[in-house]
Design a protein around this nucleic acid. Structure first.
Lengths: 335, 335
DNA sequence: CTGAAAGCGCTAACAC
DNA sequence: GTGTTAGCGCTTTCAG
């Protein structure tokens, strides 16, 4: 390639880099040769010396069947993608559907294929946080990495909504409406978001009966089943705070089936404010809004921020590693 | 790393490779050092010499919002993932949501990050087929790459269902039921699958009125709208062949809303046989089955098959590049 | 069985 | 401005 344009490879390299110190005439000659030979620079060789490869991994831990049905991730990924692309990085998605996928993905992340990683939906027992730390790969987490296992690793950079705050606001709103038997449907309690939202509920209702709390799995079906269980256990409940819109829409379905009028008999508040769900339910769902897309953008931005663990950063100018975004109650059903 | 275990890097390399010609004792010592140092071999350096990197790109051209709501891709990806992982390759997903993403993705594919690519949902005007060809990257397509633009490139390897055959069987079944005004709802006619299914319909019904054909977009909403349009144009229709289950479930919704009984007044046949949809509709949907998951597995398998364009193959032993899988009508509503 | 040496294709100093 | 020279971290002959 180099000789084919009658110059040295350094010049080719510079020309492709778009450096200004190349004579226009020479640059043109090179561009021509590139086109003719269909030459594409070998990224492996390049990244071997530059230590960069303009790609960022987005790791999603989720059984695929849930992933492809949950609009939450869709929003999040949209924000991430947008910001990553804006900075010239190619987002590459890696799925972990099974714990046994972890070592392979860890190897990929450690193999220098990517400049950083954005990780999601972590469970308390997830090995990924310690993996990226060992590897020394810059990483930003979506949602507080719940570290229930007692391992102590360096505090990770993450973006999360104010889950306890949002939950408190929701429950207080229900109290303000005069509701007195307020139940809650939680997500899987091995996920931080689920734990934090339940904590918010308990902050306001420290004496709530255990029977008023039902754990589900952030799916529509799970929400519907949990609602049924709650109605069986506490037929007199008059409100329910549901930890996600998807589950809330399942709960609404159950309530309708059981003949409980919403919001007259039972008031429902969701969490997320996903347009495709919250605005489409009947009646439209009152819910705790979080700007999921913006959170995605923030994650990507934080990855490029000066950070102690990034190779392209002067160590010393550390940035604050945690961003908690505000939530806001959106009242849709005038109850 | 090498010295830390008291051996040369060659030996480390061999040990990690799992070569048998390393003394067990030495191998153990190395494994220990690897664990302690958290050592992960640099893939860039490795692939620079081996020309392999154990990663395969899965490229999905789709506005993300459709992707995360369409169970079809979910099945396909499940099959692909399974087979790729079985062969020790890491699947990395790349989305193309916008035509302007193409150059960037092309650069990634050409950069030697991956050993091959599996591509999907191509439109007639998609630049990807010629891109991977120019780059010389082994590729397998999901669905016949519809090349409407007149470009002539090498015939590509692809896996596709027998779309025309399935459509013919569906329409013939409707005829056998005594239906005489058979409409069809197609997918976007810049996609091969949509074209081929419409072709099958026309094979059986060459004289069908143009008013009986409505183009939609493979979404639920699109199917519902197309059904409404058909009913307006041809109030006397007594059957409809819908080119996807998702659209069919939308069509069913419209029929119910308009008070047309299914299947008594209007018989409906879908395409895909996605369990989450076809079995869940009311009444359960008669549809053309294709084994989407197996098709995914086939795609991955073909990528590793001896192929003329693969660097790890003796040129000369070319394999048949196209696989068309059978479809089968699944009759669910006893009409 | 293991070590030494020669690159893989590229970039980054450093000369010219 | 452009060529020359070293490597980046690994695998792979080729000796021992």
């Amino acid at each position: 390639m180099a000789r084919s344009a009658g110059v040295s490879k350094s010049t080719v390299s510079r020309a492709i880099d778009g450096e200004p110190k190349v004579r226009a005439e020479v640059a043109e000659r090179i561009r021509q040769a590139v086109r003719e030979l269909g030459y594409v620079p070998n990224q492996a060789a390049r990244s071997l010396v530059t230590r960069r490869n303009n790609a960022v991994a987005v790791v999603v831990t989720e059984p695929q069947n849930r992933l492809f049905v949950d609009p939450y991730l869709d929003c999040h990924l949209r924000g991430i993608r947008q910001e990553l692309v804006r900075r010239g990085a190619q987002p590459v998605l890696l799925f972990i559907e099974d714990p046994e996928d972890c070592p392979r993905v860890g190897e990929f992340l450690g193999g220098g294929h990517v400049d950083g990683a954005l990780l999601f939906s972590l469970r308390t027992d997830d090995p990924l946080p310690s993996m990226v730390e060992r590897i020394g790969l810059p990483a930003v987490f979506g949602g507080r990495p719940a570290d229930g296992s007692g391992h102590h690793h360096r505090s990770h950079t993450y973006v999360d909504a104010d889950n306890p705050g949002g939950a408190r606001e929701a429950v207080r709103h229900l109290l303000g409406l005069g509701r007195r038997r307020i139940a809650t449907i939680t997500g899987p309690l091995n996920q931080a978001a689920a734990i934090d939202r339940l904590d918010g509920y308990r902050d306001v209702l420290p004496d709530a009966a255990p029977a008023l709390v039902a754990e589900a799995d952030f799916t529509l079906r799970g929400g519907a089943d949990a609602m049924a269980a709650l109605l069986d256990r506490c037929p007199d409940l008059d409100a329910v705070f549901v930890a996600s819109d998807l589950m809330a829409s399942g709960a609404l379905r159950t309530l309708r089936k059981r003949g409980r009028r919403v919001p007259d008999a039972v008031a429902v508040i969701g969490f997320d404010d996903l347009p495709t769900i919250a605005e489409a339910t009947d009646p439209p769902l009152t819910t705790v809004h979080q700007d999921v897309e913006e959170m995605g953008r923030l994650m990507a931005r934080l990855l490029f921020e000066p950070r102690p663990d990034a190779p392209w950063t002067d160590p010393g100018d550390a940035a604050l590693p945690i961003v908690v975004t505000a939530t806001e109650l959106v009242v849709r059903e005038p109850a």
